[in-house]
Structure formats: structure tokens, C-alpha cells
Design a protein around this nucleic acid. Sequence first.
DNA 1: ACTTCCAATTGACCGGCGTTCATTTTTATT
DNA 2: AATAAAAATGAACGCCGGTCAATTGGAAGT
Lengths: 199, 199
Amino acid sequence: MARRSSHTPEELRQRILEAAQNIIEREGLIGLSAREIARSIGYSPGTLYNIFENLDDVLLTLQTQMMASLVDVMKAVPTAETPQLTIDALAHAYVDFALDNKRMWNLLFTHYLPSEMAAPVALIENVNIVSSIVESAIAPLMAKAGKLEIEVAAKALWAGVHGVTAIAVTDKGPTLNSATAHAFARQLVTTYTRGLTCK
Amino acid sequence: MARRSSHTPEELRQRILEAAQNIIEREGLIGLSAREIARSIGYSPGTLYNIFENLDDVLLTLQTQMMASLVDVMKAVPTAETPQLTIDALAHAYVDFALDNKRMWNLLFTHYLPSEMAAPVALIENVNIVSSIVESAIAPLMAKAGKLEIEVAAKALWAGVHGVTAIAVTDKGPTLNSATAHAFARQLVTTYTRGLTCK
DNA sequence: ACTTCCAATTGACCGGCGTTCATTTTTATT
DNA sequence: AATAAAAATGAACGCCGGTCAATTGGAAGT
């Protein structure tokens, strides 16, 4: 059959991505399959492969979308009265974003794509944008420092916030989890920035 | 057939775990399958299920072993002249451990076991031991602080070191990767501990 | 209205997977 | 030698990712 449904290729593409995202949020990566996606949008498995190269292509596209959303969220964080407060707000936004999309956020960092499959430029670029946002926020605290020094300081801190987030989203253990993630992130940011500013 | 080979059940168990570990280090989780394990030790697939409940049981056992190794490594880190140096040495050991066993270390944090499968007590206990090692190292810097405060400070820092490690092992991007991981961990530890000690 | 054409879609097919379990083989015991 | 128990098998089930020749049905041309 052909053109049975009224979906344009773009619509179909979006429906596939939505379906995949729903399945992941519901059942995790483990529950995702081409057949399950096809079932949930009322198409046959083969149809997926007319639009995406394979399942990894679908996942890579989702990763790219997620990263773009993250950048949007972080860009929307307003500059606060002090650099410390701005960084704290950025960390809060980051943690919130992850907690709101636990499984999809996890996907960003835990799904290894086959090495022969290059990450799209847009994805890499957005990673850099996140870095630069943090660098801009941290720079005022390091007036006398060079560009490289600032970059290192920003990336170390952000990797740290990332670590807090990563542990929190798994929700194991009673101490560092979804409920307490913001507090731990604040502790890290506060102490780290104090370390930056006082000798 | 039965008892064809000369392997005791314990030996067989170890061979399965070794084979699984080799496959994971070589090809990642994606390459792991019960059939592949069986092939690589010269048994039929069914045999695995005489010894382990299922593949997740194998993975959980590997996770437990890995965590035990990590604890061994961290316990072996000698107390240095200053708390700062001790913490730095602990971070170094942690990063080293992860870099030496990238895929297996990743397994510790990225493989979601089905929720109906509880983590073994030994695994949870060892996570707590890692925490307590860091707490002991950080306590001298927080003489006036309460137990809870120390715990929070230690866990936030260690989640941070974990984050640096997590990003480094994926080896994407030119900045924070295997080659630079130790430097970033040191940056985080140094700045954070300075933030703890100076007002 | 009728035909032609072609993009859209299908679904059978391949090889592989996790897991189960009745059956077979081997060892140990009597 | 006979028997019981243990160990290992491999066929079977229902899934999976991915391919592709065949089919369908709307659009365009007449």
C-alpha cells in the first residue's frame, strides 16, 4: 500500500521520534525496539528504515534534540546578582532538566553509538555551548586568570555538577537522589566557587 | 552429557565471569550475549542457566566484583601528609581505576538492572565503604563540622570526581578525556578543599 | 474515465538473541 | 553391574534488527 495514512514524511519522522521517546521514558532503553516503535505508530517495521538508517540513527537524533533542549534551558537562565548565584541557578537548571527527563537524559550519556557513526555537528556544538555558558558565568570570579584557566575551572566544575546529577537520577541509596540532588549540587557549587575566590 | 570437562562448578562460574568480562572489554555491553559467552568457553548456552539465573545475574555479579576491586584500590591508598593530599591521591586512584577498566567501570553505573532485581548487599555495602573512606579523608578539614555536614561535603565532592571520571572515560571531545582526567580531578579536589578550609 | 507510473508501504525472510526444559550423558554410589 | 544423581545438552519458543522484492494506491497525463 502507499500513502495510506495522511502523514507527510516529516510528520512520520516526528511520530517515530515521539514514539521512541515515549517508550524510553516508560520502559527505558531496554524496551525500545524498531518493532515496538512501528507497532505504536501503526506502521510496519520496514517503514522505519525508509526514514532512518537504523535504530542508532533514531537514538542519535533524539540525543541531538535533547541536547538542544538542554541548551535552550540553560540559555534561558537569567544572570543573577552575583556570579555565584548565576552559577547556582545554572546548576539548578541542569539538575532540573535531568530530573524531568531522567531516562532521556541518561540516554545522552550512557548510550554508546557504534564508533563508525560520527556524532552530528549540531550535537557537538551544543555541548560546547553549555561549556561556554558556564565559562561566562565563572569568568567574573577569575578576573586575573587566563582563558585556558577559566576553561579548565569551568569544565571541572561542570563535570562535577554532572556527576551529582548522574548519581541522583539513578535514585539508588538514601543520600544522594532525586530528592536531594539540588542540595548536593548547591554544596558543590558553593564550596567550589569559594575555593576559586579565596586564597 | 555431564561433567565432560574437568571444571568444578566454581571453576565454571569463574570462566563464565571471565569470558563475560573479556567480551565487554573488547566489544562493550552490546557484544555480550549468553550464546557468545557459551561459545567462548566451549559450552552450550543452557549451561549458563545452570549456574546463573540469567544474563543480568552475570552482570550483577560482575558489578559486585568490580565494586569490590574499587574498594580494594581505594583502601590501599596511603594517608598522605595533608588531608588535601590524601583526597587528591584517592581521586587519582579512582580515576585510574576507571581508566584501566573503562567499559567495566561504565557497567557499574550505566547498566540498569530490571527493577525487580535487588542489588546484592555486598554491592551496596561497598558503595558505602567508598563514601566512608572519603569522609574519613575530608573530616580533618572540617573540624568544627557535624557528622552530617561531613557526609554531605564528602558525597558532593565524590559525586564531582565521579562526574569528571564519567566524562573522561567516554573520550569524546578534546578537552576532558582520558589524557586530561587526572588534571581535571585535581582541579576539582584542590579548589573544593580550598573552599572548605577558607572562609 | 482510464491508464500509467512511481513513491510509499509492506511483510516475509535472514540470522541472532535470551531463556526453558525434556532428554541424554557421565560420574559416583551401592 | 545396576542404579541414582549430577551435569550438560540442544531443540524449541518468541522475540529482535535489518533487508528487499513485491504490492498498493494516489497523482498525473491523456
